[in-house]
Design a protein around this nucleic acid. Structure first.
Lengths: 110, 110
DNA sequence: CAAGCATATCCATACATGCTCATATAGTTT
DNA sequence: AAACTATATGAGCATGTATGGATATGCTTG
């Protein structure tokens, strides 16, 4: 009844999962760092300020979601953005948030 | 050191929070239902299959995030999509996931 | 093959989040 | 005002998740 939804239950969970992966500050920070350039884990650890264990874990999760790619080179593992849609996603959210902020400013300015 | 990130720490948390709000199957389902049309809570409860308390709570969260709007009419409260960026966001994620699925299919088909 | 470095994983813990039941609030009708 | 309907909220519980320290794995070099 009224279940002619355009997204199946399974697809809905997949989409939610992807959003959830992006809904974590440390993961977003890592993605942002990777947007500048492909980098090895140790560089990401230093730049992000997180512990090695935590950064590694988050990178695993991002890789499992297909958002970043792994490339082994000697002892190091280089991660890079694998899904370009991330850029547009972040732009969209940032734009939307800016609009909201603008509204709030308006409330204060009259 | 290396903290010339394009997004401030605060902004990063805001973006993460927005993604996190979208990272929940029930909330996505509610948004999807609202994409069809503005609806009162009881309709959303029935269509989503969730309990009244839970649906109400999720709607509160969506409203707090500025994603949906509240409109009171008599006893009922009508919710509606307030942020059109949701459409593009979902399209982007769906498109990205479809590409990933396609890759997986390729792996099986050769 | 021993030593050393980079990365991943295990374990335990703290914290956040979703869910349900019961109840409160708000508005309507008689 | 009392009864009724629709929605929101409080409390408690269960589960998930992020985190840090210690340790294992993998690779390279002496």
């Amino acid at each position: 009844m009224a279940k002619t939804s355009s997204l199946s239950e399974g697809a809905l969970h997949l989409v939610a999962r992807r959003f959830a992966v992006l809904g974590e500050p440390m993961r977003l920070r890592l993605l942002q760092l990777l947007m500048a350039a492909e980098q090895p884990v140790n560089a990401l650890v230093e730049a992000s300020g997180g512990t090695q264990a935590n950064v590694s874990r988050h990178l695993q999760m991002l890789a499992a979601a297909g958002l970043v790619s792994r490339r082994k080179e000697g002892l190091q593992v280089f991660y890079a953005i694998a899904d370009p849609s991330i850029f547009k996603l972040c732009d969209l959210v940032c734009g939307s948030l800016e609009k909201q902020m603008a509204k709030h400013v308006k409330l204060f300015e009259g």
